[in-house]
Amino acid sequence: MRRHQLAIVVKEKEYTRRIADYIRGSSFGDRWQVSAFTHPDACKQFVKQGYGIDLIAAETDLLRELQPELSHIPAIALVARLGEADGQFELLQFQALPLLLQGITDQFEGLCRKPVKGLAPNTNGKGALVLTVHSASGGVGKTTLALHLAGVASARGLRMLYLNLEKWNTSGLWLQPGGDAGWEGEGLSELLYAIKSGSSSHTSWLAQHRKFHPQLKCDYLYGFRNQEDRATLLPADAAGMVDSIVKSGCYDGVIVDMDDGMDELHYELLMRADRNLWIVSEERSALAKQSQMLHYGRQKYGETFGRIAACSEVVLSGINSELGNPLPAVEAALAPIALPLVREWRRGELHPVWSSSLYRAAVDRLCAYLLGESEESRIHAVG
C-alpha cells in the first residue's frame, strides 16, 4: 500500500508533534506520512519545491490562507465546533487521536474513491447508491435482510451504511452490545435537527457520530433519541437525511430499512431509491397485503408509481425448502433468489445477526443477482 502525504497545518507545534508520534507508532503509519507546518506560507513553499501533498488538514483560518493556491489538493478543516468552516469538510481538532486519524482516513477515501467495477452510477449521478427494504406487512424479515445486505456488501470491500427509519426501531437488539434495543448518544434526532436548521456540516457530523459494527463490517447510526421526532418525520426530511449521507462521499451504498405500509413518507423514500426490495413471507396473508399495497400505490400515485415498480423486485422470505415454493406469482417482478427458512430464528430467542450461513449465502446470491453478476464471480452488493 502506498503511503499518502498528509500535511498538518496548525499553529501549535506540540499538536503536530503528538499527531506525528501517534501515526509512527500505529497502523496509520502504513498509510500516512506526515509533514507538519505552523504557517501556511511554509506549506505553500513545500509544494512549490516539488513535494507532493495528497491531503491537507488545517485549522480553518490557516486553510483559508492556503487557498486558492492549493485548492487543487483535497482539504479538511480542523475545527473547535462543527459548522465553523462554511461547508468545508470538517473534523473536530481536539478529540482522541485514533478517532481523528480514522476521520481523516475516511474522508480522504471518500474524496478519492473511484467507482467499483460492476457498481452502476445511481440515478442522481453522484454519491452512494440507495437500496430500500420495504413491505406491506410487518414481521416478514425486513431488518434481517437489510442487515445481511449491509454485511455481505461490506465483506466485499464496499463502504456501507445501514439506516433504520422504522417508527419502532429495534435494530439495536442486533447492533448494540448486549442486545439493547434503546439508543444512547447522538443519532437520527440530531441529524434531523441539523437538516431542519439548514446546517451544512452533515458530513462532519456523520464522521463524528457513525458507529461501526465489528461483525457486519458496516457503519450505522443510533436511532431517534426522541420518539416524537420519528412520529412526526416529514417525507422531505426523511429524504434529506438519506441525501445527506449519500452526498457525504463516505459510502458506496446506503441500505434503508423501512416501515411496512404505504404513505407519503414511504412514497418519498421509494422514489429516492435506486433499487427497492419488497419482502413477502410464505404466509398467504402477507402476499395478499402486498398485492393490495401495489394496487393502492398505482391507484394513488398513478404513472409515477411505475417508476418505483420499475426498480423494485419482490423477495420471498422464509421459504420452506421441504415444501418448495408454494406462493403464486405476485403483481411485480419476482427476484429469482428466495430467502430460506431458518428454524432456530423462530423460537423467540434473540439470535446473532450473522449466525446462519445458509441465510447469509442466499443474501450473497441475491446481491449477485441485483448487480447482474454471475454467481461464480466475486460480486459487490449495493444498498
Rank of each mutant, 00 (worst) to 15 (best):
R2I: 15
L6V: 04
V10A: 09
E14G: 12
I19L: 08
Y22S: 07
R24T: 08
S27Y: 15
D30H: 14
R31P: 02
Q33G: 06
S35Q: 10
S35L: 05
D41H: 05
C43H: 02
V47T: 08
K48S: 01
Q49W: 02
Q49V: 00
G50W: 05
I53R: 04
D54M: 02
A57T: 03
A58H: 12
E59V: 14
E59K: 13
L63E: 09
R64M: 13
E65V: 06
S71W: 05
I76R: 06
A77M: 14
E84I: 05
Q93H: 09
F94E: 07
Q95H: 15
F108T: 03
V116R: 06
G118F: 05
G118K: 12
A120N: 03
P121F: 10
P121D: 09
P121L: 10
N122E: 03
L131A: 02
H134D: 07
V140E: 01
K142D: 11
T143W: 06
L147G: 04
L158P: 00
L161A: 15
Y162W: 09
L163G: 03
L163R: 12
K167P: 00
T170Q: 14
T170G: 03
G172Y: 06
W174K: 03
L175Y: 10
P177I: 14
G178Y: 13
A181P: 08
G182S: 07
G182N: 08
L188S: 15
S189P: 02
L191D: 10
A194Q: 06
I195E: 11
A207G: 07
R210I: 09
R210W: 14
H213M: 03
Q215P: 01
L216T: 01
K217E: 00
K217V: 00
D219H: 09
G223S: 07
F224P: 02
T232H: 11
L233G: 02
V242L: 06
S248A: 15
G253Q: 10
D257C: 03
D260S: 12
G261L: 06
D263Y: 13
H266Q: 14
Y267K: 08
Y267T: 02
L269I: 07
M271D: 05
M271G: 03
N276S: 13
N276H: 02
E282Q: 12
S285M: 12
L294D: 01
R298P: 00
Q299N: 12
K300G: 02
C311M: 06
S312V: 06
V315H: 05
L316F: 08
S321A: 11
P326V: 09
E331Y: 12
A332P: 01
A332W: 11
L334T: 03
L339F: 06
L341C: 03
V342C: 13
W345E: 08
R346V: 05
R347F: 04
G348I: 13
P352S: 09
P352N: 10
S355V: 01
R360W: 06
V363R: 00
A368R: 02
Y369W: 11
E373N: 03
S374N: 13
E375N: 14
S377K: 04
S377C: 13
I379V: 13
A381T: 14
